[in-house]
Nucleic acid binder design. Structure first.
Lengths: 169, 169
DNA sequence: GCCGGTTAGTTTGGCCCAAAACAATCGTCG
DNA sequence: CGACGATTGTTTTGGGCCAAACTAACCGGC
């Protein structure tokens, strides 16, 4: 009976003292990624995004909605195309966003007499109220970022982000 | 015939010397957004993302795929969950991503004998070849970012991004 | 051995986003 | 005036991403 029913045993010899077959997920190497600005930019933006949502508590009002409402308030007479450029989003992204905001009674679209293709956007009273509330959350959220970066470093940090935004247009 | 067929004319009196009805899109105000780190983080990440795609030329291989391939190469024996944590993506995002990479013949999934729930990921030769090519594009892309930020500022800049990632994790 | 809590991976549903195709309108130039 | 190119906004299509619900498998204690 020396080797009656053993056939698939040798496959495990690989494990001895060599690398483990399965890599534990808490000791990963990043390779070149560890030094890439782009990679860290992505992770930092994700973290900031999630923190914003955590602050507002409402999952239905993401940064995109907030940006839209704020730009509408700050720029009376803005059109969807203006909003698209100001928010850095494609116009095809703006259409359903405005449709939702309008359906929720937060904004109004008014026809503009000089150009029948376009229309002008404005906050409703409900929209202003909601925006005021969101602004508080956003301010607290960004104050956290200020603290992490360090107030004294903020101007330089913002300048670097702006340089990336402009030079890579 | 002093006023034979004119009735809807008075509506235009509003335009005189007051604010224009329609805001031109090249002179937008940002309000509080102009000082928000989060807002600039989002725009910078968008710009970096688009620049990466521009460098590779291929619209089907976004940064997410690149990150996955690189982490698989850098961490032999990595599992989908490890990849999820390393790349900072939800595990439900990883599933279709791996399915596609496998269908394209770029990666392999091997069963792991000690845990029948999981499997181990590995690059195929085709995957290695493609990754090598992508690495060149990625290096050039990130070198642009280095230049924009300024090599002497890069360590501090990366440290600030990492601080955001960790403290808001 | 078995049972409750945990973990790996998949599926489903929903939002955000962009590219491309399209209709309506505008401006201009002849 | 009238035609042509540019611009506004919508729709369609396709992808990435997340959260929650689900299945299968693991692991601990009893």
């Amino acid at each position: 009976m020396p080797e009656s029913d053993s056939e698939l045993v040798e496959a495990e010899a690989e494990e001895t003292a060599g690398e483990p077959l399965v890599r534990r997920s808490d000791q990963l190497g990043l390779g070149p990624l560890g030094d890439y600005i782009g990679f860290h930019l992505r992770l930092a933006q994700d973290a900031s995004f999630r923190n914003f949502v955590r602050h507002t508590g409402r999952r239905d009002l993401r940064p995109g909605r907030f940006t839209a409402l704020l730009l509408i308030r700050e720029n009376p007479g803005i059109t969807p195309m203006g909003l698209s450029r100001g928010a850095g989003r494609d116009k095809s992204t703006i259409t359903p966003l405005l449709r939702d905001l309008e359906r929720q009674g937060l904004i109004e679209r008014r026809p503009v007499p000089t150009d029948r293709r376009s229309h002008v956007l404005a906050l409703t009273p409900a929209g202003q109220t909601l925006l005021d509330e969101l602004c508080e959350h956003a301010a607290r959220h960004d104050a956290e970022l200020d603290e992490i970066v360090g107030i004294e470093n903020k101007p330089a940090f913002l300048a670097q982000l702006r340089a990336i935004i402009e030079r890579l247009g």
